[in-house]
């Protein structure tokens, strides 16, 4: 039995189909990342699995049950910071424990354990208003590790966190994984999705690819990725780079551009020379193996960050 099974899921808002026949299976104990840009339907899909929204048609099951009947098994962390900044971390968790019907003594014991699990024991009695973004997100993740919860749905949990906080956050996720819970991570950040055992790419309400990160990269982005930064960006640079990239695809990337080539090491010097001949000074050029963002670009011809922005 799958921990989560989604079959031919359709959801429409105001005549716009935000989920269009989505299929998805998550195994027990699996870390599954659902990656896509804003508006791709991933948050709606998460909310449906979390029993917060209902679908127009299709099947959604959590351990074989309708999500509304399986709420005891589901732990949902919405994208927004829902913890109360006026309460301490301990008081916030005690509030959720009381809603779940735990006695005061059992709640106190559980809350202390959970605070310890998410590394917030020392800050337990500080007001959440004084927490960093990473601490607050860890506190909110603690609300989904109450006993009995087997499917965790985390919607963009690392948005706005600095690299150290993100590392710490995924350390926490690893600990949760060790407890055999299934995790569905909703994200638009490729490096976060790389940590999952399987990744589903979603765009315009449709699953466009699914597999392990390595499988996705092998299948959909076999090329090398060359990042080029010139002194000035512009059409003349673009026209040169298009000549070297497969199918003429060039993606914006920070201060420069990315191109895709099946023999990157051979064309690096040619790219520099061609740009030099058109009067463009190359500030930086480097070659790397593709990331999941590159896979998304190859499949949709849109850069994930641009689509997200």
């Amino acid at each position: 039995m799958f921990a989560v099974r989604v079959e031919n899921l359709i959801k429409t808002y105001d005549s716009r189909r935000v989920l269009d026949g989505v299929n998805l299976n998550v195994h027990e104990g699996e870390f599954y990342a659902l990656m896509g840009p804003n508006g791709s339907g991933k948050t709606t899909l998460a909310a449906i699995i979390a029993a917060v929204k209902t679908q127009d048609s299709g099947i959604v099951e959590v351990y074989g049950n309708n999500p509304a009947q399986a709420k005891k098994l589901i732990g949902y962390v919405p994208q927004e910071n829902f913890s109360s900044p006026r309460l301490s971390g301990r008081e916030n968790l005690a509030y959720f424990a009381s809603l779940l019907g735990y006695s005061r003594s059992r709640a106190n014991q559980l809350v202390a354990e959970m605070l310890n699990n998410v590394g917030l024991s020392q800050e337990a009695d500080k007001r959440v208003a004084n927490y960093s973004g990473g601490m607050r997100k860890r506190l909110e993740v603690a609300t989904v590790i109450f006993p009995g919860i087997k499917v965790l749905i985390l919607d963009e949990p690392t948005t706005g966190l600095d690299p150290a906080a993100r590392r710490s956050f995924f350390g926490l996720i690893q600990e949760i994984m060790d407890k055999k819970a299934s995790i569905i991570l909703i994200t638009h950040i490729g490096s976060d999705a790389e940590l999952a055992s399987r990744v589903g790419l979603i765009d315009n309400g449709k699953m466009i690819a699914e597999g392990t990160p390595d499988e996705l990269k092998r299948k959909h982005a076999v090329e090398d990725v060359i990042t080029v930064e010139t002194a000035v960006k512009g059409d003349s640079v673009l026209s040169v780079l298009k000549g070297y990239s497969i199918n003429g695809k060039v993606a914006e990337s920070g201060a420069g551009y990315k191109i895709y080539s099946q023999n990157g090491d051979r064309i690096l010097a040619d790219v520099v020379r061609s740009l030099d001949q058109t009067g463009q000074k190359v500030m930086r050029i480097e070659m790397a193996r593709p990331t999941l963002e590159d896979v998304f670009f190859r499949l949709t011809e849109r850069h994930l960050e641009e689509a997200t922005g």
Partner: peptide, 10 residues
Amino acid sequence: NGLLSKLISM
């Protein structure tokens, strides 16, 4: 702030 979604999911 997402608390209502959180409560509904519980």
